[in-house]
């Protein structure tokens, strides 16, 4: 239990997937202009990450990892080099399926999240979380917590950024620095603030 709480705190604050590992920067910069889409995309990322990370865990540990195919009598097969292509295929398929399910059963949710779902398939935060999950050797429960809390960390960052950019619109930014340049510097300052959490250990 303690272990899970520590993974949770670590991936929301200290090892924030966006501010410490730089994943999902493209959509972060494109969407954080306005508050509402930022919140929508944030929820979508949490949702998709909590589903894809455990599923990729199952796929990796029962099909791809060295010796994982022992259950069909092939203990010497190592397919782990295929993980990139399989993970991205799983993510794309799940996103596509989710889009159809949400459209069928919850039109209001589809209206809110629908536009973001196709964007998500190529968001590096999603693939990156699955790859980190393999690299850090998490077990199944840990990967569930890791997926969900990485999403929360990402949402926390994008919503904060949207708030800051709203205020920034009235600021007098030097010529040439407006837009992309100042966003990067603000993100840098935010990352600095998040580093203060790194003293916290459980």
């Amino acid at each position: 239990m303690e272990n899970l709480i520590s993974i949770f705190l670590n991936s929301v604050f200290v090892g924030n997937i966006l501010l410490a590992y730089f994943l999902g920067m493209c959509s972060f910069l494109a969407i954080s202009n306005n508050m509402e889409p930022a919140v929508g995309l944030g929820f979508t990322v949490i949702f998709v990450l909590s589903i894809t990370t455990p599923i990729n865990w199952l796929v990796y540990h029962y099909l791809l990892a060295p010796g994982a195919l022992a259950w069909v009598g092939l203990p010497l097969v190592d397919l782990s080099f295929l993980k990139f292509i399989i993970f991205i295929a799983v993510i794309a398929a799940i996103v596509q399926a989710l889009e159809m399910i949400i459209d069928r059963y919850s039109p209001p949710l589809y209206m809110a999240l629908g536009v973001f779902l196709p964007l998500i398939a190529v968001n590096c935060a999603i693939l990156g979380t699955s790859l980190f999950m393999v690299e850090r050797d998490y077990n199944f429960m840990e990967s569930v917590v890791f997926g969900a809390s990485s999403g929360m960390g990402w949402m926390l960052a994008i919503v904060t950024m949207a708030g800051i950019r709203k205020k920034l619109r009235y600021a007098d930014v030097p010529e040439g620095l407006e837009g992309f340049g100042i966003s990067m510097i603000v993100t840098g300052l935010m990352a600095m603030a998040f580093m203060l959490f790194s003293g916290i250990t459980l």
């Binding site: 840098g188 990352a191 580093m195």
Partner: peptide, 14 residues
């Protein structure tokens, strides 16, 4: 550290 990278890119773009 991470913040250094963000600020370096911001300045290069400027």
């Amino acid at each position: 550290l991470a913040p250094g990278a963000f600020i370096a890119i911001g300045l290069i773009v400027w």
